[in-house]
Amino acid sequence: MVWIEFVTPSGDVRRVEASEGESLMQAAVRHQVEGIEAACGGSMSCGTCHAWISEPWSAALPQPEEGERSILDFGVHIRPQSRLTCQIQVSAALDGARIEVPPSQS
């Protein structure tokens, strides 16, 4: 089991259990983490599962692919640590990772 900490737009810290192999988005949705809308369910067609991955975990992740980058380019509240959580696979390396959910997805 991998533990992930989501900081929600209301400022709550939600510590949730994620399984290796699922995406960060799936873990967030399963635990109904506020602000991770994931309207397209992981088809990379919306950008509503955007979150900021804190360091050092952000730097350790593989770089986003072109499709993800182009969605982030046109998003709101974008920072260098911005990622689409549907594109990040949960692994042991993410244990304890802190993920901040932006105040809105649009």
């Binding site: 067609s45 950008g47 182009s70 969605i71 380019d73 046109f74 998003g75 709101v76 997805q105 649009s106």
Partner: peptide
Amino acid sequence: MPHFSPKA
């Protein structure tokens, strides 16, 4: 998509 993004 970029033309229907939140920003656009």
